[in-house]
């Protein structure tokens, strides 16, 4: 006999009762109530932590039983989903689950997110890419960029020089070279997903010859070819979603930290990929690929003292410029 508390489903009146099994029937008895029901028509809750077990009757009545051991002895093997409770209360399964979850999340960040982002970037319609690129340039123009002060003859000369660039397979490359100046961004260049490449006056001034600028264009074309901009955007959204899902209950602020770290990691990988691409492009175009390393070293000089502030490079989205230059040197000599 097991003790329980019975509610008839019509009022909140509690009845202290005892339960016993009578063949295939459950016999319930207490002050002012008595019933006998076939076990097969009862809905018996699966165990869940140390919460009371519940027997639900077809007419809405319910019986709460706190004596878990007594309940199991009485109605052994009743209640669906017992395996869940067994898993949840087994230390071994809980630890195994924990390790599996950690492995799945790590794998998701390492392979899943980049793969999915790649798919999204590849499937994005060209019209959308153009619209997005235009909007981005508008925002940049408004916030950070000023019109270029280079004479139009110089701009045209660089555009003509860029016509020489060929992909590694030797085919001409489709892109649009535009010029801007920026007081705040320093010597820099960037690519928009639609193939627009923005060269800043400060970078043009830093380069000693046009080949070095072509190296920059080739690097940016690497970003365009691999759709790095779109992929970074999609990956940022995916990681942000994951982090919010993971930490969301506690703090959305906490969720931004992993997003920033992951983005910096992905971004570093993209820079390396674009460098490798640039070396191949320059070689196919008959330009000395060493130019890229030369320019990276000059950039490093202008940025001296700013490199890898704090955090030991963890937050740097660009791998240290000198390290990149060394890598390019390696690629150049390896390809010879």
């Amino acid at each position: 006999m097991v003790a329980g508390v019975f509610f008839d489903g019509r009022s909140a009146q509690r009845h202290d009762v005892t339960l016993s099994l009578d063949g295939a029937q459950l016999y319930l008895r207490g002050a002012g109530c008595e019933r006998r029901d076939a076990v097969s028509v009862l809905r018996i809750s699966a165990p869940l932590g140390r919460t009371p077990r519940l027997i639900r009757y077809a007419d809405g009545a319910v019986c709460e039983v706190r004596d878990a051991a007594g309940f199991d002895a009485l109605l052994e093997s009743q209640g669906q989903g017992r395996w869940l409770h067994r898993a949840e209360s087994s230390a071994r399964i809980v630890v195994a689950s924990l390790l599996l979850v950690a492995a799945l999340i790590a794998a998701g960040l390492y392979w899943g997110v980049p793969l999915a982002a790649n798919g999204v970037a590849a499937e994005m319609p060209a019209s959308l890419v153009r619209q997005f690129s235009r909007q981005t340039l508008d925002v940049l123009d408004h916030q950070w960029l000023q019109p270029s002060t280079l004479p139009s003859s110089r701009q045209d000369a660089l555009r003509v020089a860029a016509q020489r660039l060929r992909s590694a397979e030797g085919s001409p490359l489709a892109f649009k070279l535009v010029f801007r100046a920026s007081k705040t961004m320093g010597p820099n260049a960037f690519a928009l997903p639609d193939g627009t490449i923005v060269l800043l006056d400060e970078l043009v001034a830093l380069a000693d010859n046009d080949d070095e600028l072509m190296a920059v264009v080739a690097h940016e074309l690497g970003h365009v070819r691999h759709r790095h901009g779109l992929r970074l955007m999609a990956q940022g959204a995916a990681v942000g979603l994951l982090a919010t899902w993971w930490f969301g209950d506690v703090s959305t602020l906490l969720a931004t930290a992993p997003t920033v770290l992951a983005q910096a990691h992905y971004s570093r990988e993209f820079e390396t990929e674009a460098d490798d691409d640039a070396v191949r492009t320059l070689r196919a175009s008959g330009i000395a690929p060493e130019c890229l390393a030369t320019l990276l070293r000059k950039l490093a000089v202008t940025q001296k003292g700013r490199e890898s502030q704090g955090f030991g490079g963890l937050l740097d989205s660009h791998p240290a410029l000198l390290a990149r230059a060394r890598r390019v040197d390696g690629e150049v000599s390896a390809g010879r």
Partner: peptide
């Protein structure tokens, strides 16, 4: 509230694993 952290951890992690897989 009678819940316990250790108990809920088991429920939470199993839920998480099943949701992921």
């Amino acid at each position: 509230f009678n819940g316990s952290g250790r108990e809920y951890f088991g429920i939470w992690i199993v839920n998480l694993l099943l949701t992921l897989v």
